[in-house]
């Protein structure tokens, strides 16, 4: 699968380099967008929902058919309080193993290597009174498995003797401290173990549709590995439509993205449904509708997809 993806990426890059971007609107027939329509839809989104902004990205990676400051859309620090796996009624080890066997590929499944621990974590969170805040052990597990977090903190021997003492600072709100410190004396709702996401929407020239990217951070603000990001993708999509690719417009960053190969089809269907129901739909509203569709893929990431479309 990996090889196939790599070959396809190369093919796609070649086509994008040679073939001109779509110039005639085919939105109604195929559910795809021209670059101009993407910009118009982006402008509409930014206007309707200012949590999204246009950015220019790396000047070296600009697409000349877009304005320099409107290369892609981004919204930052979007919270994700729960893992998608919890939402779906807990972890089902059988499904994981079935997939692992079938695909012969364990990169995504690696985060769930210890099914017992995940099950315990999910149970624990529910036991805490169902407040939806995951048990900290839940997150420590995949972090450690991915070689992140404090696992190698002993790289500097005896780093603890670097500890500083700032003395009393009564003006500091205690919840700025890390979770461990808080646990002892602060009410539970001050404990922040929420992951956050920077979400990007780029234009995919090959498929002529928007493409959605997820860049995640853990509770302490450290980057999540793409494998960990999978925990926030609904199970039915995690192993089918999510791929990890270099993020266009920004150098050096690979990110999980929802592969755009079916987007046009889905969008066409959604638009047809709206029209059949007697609603209006204009191409400017494309991204608003697109985000509603994406919400089903990443159900626990709390970006704003509440804007109405179709004259509601």
């Amino acid at each position: 699968m990996s090889l196939k993806h790599t070959l396809h990426t190369l093919f796609k890059q070649t086509v994008e380099a040679v073939a001109p971007p779509l110039s005639k609107s085919q939105f109604e027939a195929k559910g795809v967008l021209t670059p101009e329509e993407f910009v118009a839809a982006g402008d509409y989104l930014v206007h309707a929902c200012p949590t999204w902004t246009w950015e220019g990205g790396d000047p070296k990676k600009r697409r000349t058919y877009f304005p320099a400051d409107k290369q892609f859309l981004v919204t930052r620090k979007v919270p994700c309080v729960r893992r998608a796996t919890e939402l779906e009624g807990g972890y089902n080890p059988n499904s994981e193993f079935a997939v692992a066997g079938e695909e012969g590929e364990d990169a995504w499944v690696a985060t769930h290597q210890d099914p017992a621990a995940s099950a315990r974590g999910a149970g624990g969170a529910a036991g805490d009174g169902g407040d939806g805040i995951p048990n900290i052990d839940d997150d420590a597990k995949p972090s450690a498995a991915a070689g992140q977090g404090g696992a190698k903190e002993d790289d500097i021997p005896d780093i603890t003797d670097l500890e500083l003492n700032e003395g009393e600072d009564e003006a500091a709100a205690p919840s700025g401290r890390a979770p461990g410190y808080l646990r002892a004396e602060e009410p539970a709702d001050n404990i922040m173990r929420t992951r956050t996401y920077d979400l990007y929407i780029t234009y995919d020239q090959y498929y002529q549709v928007p493409r959605f990217w997820l860049v995640g951070f853990d509770e302490s603000g450290k980057p999540l590995l793409p494998q960990q990001v999978m925990e926030d993708v609904s199970e039915e999509h995690a192993r089918k439509t999510i791929t990890v690719d270099p993020l266009p417009h920004l150098s050096g960053l690979s990110a999980a993205s929802i592969h755009p190969c079916r987007h046009a089809e889905v969008m066409k269907k959604l638009v047809d449904n709206l029209l059949e129901a007697g609603r209006e739909f204009r191409v400017q509203q494309y991204l608003v509708l697109f985000l509603k569709f994406i919400a089903s893929v990443v159900p626990t990431i709390q970006y704003d997809y509440t804007m109405s479309v179709g004259g509601e």
Partner: peptide, 10 residues
Amino acid sequence: EQGRLLPRFM
């Protein structure tokens, strides 16, 4: 992450 005044590691 443990709430101590120490460097972070990544």
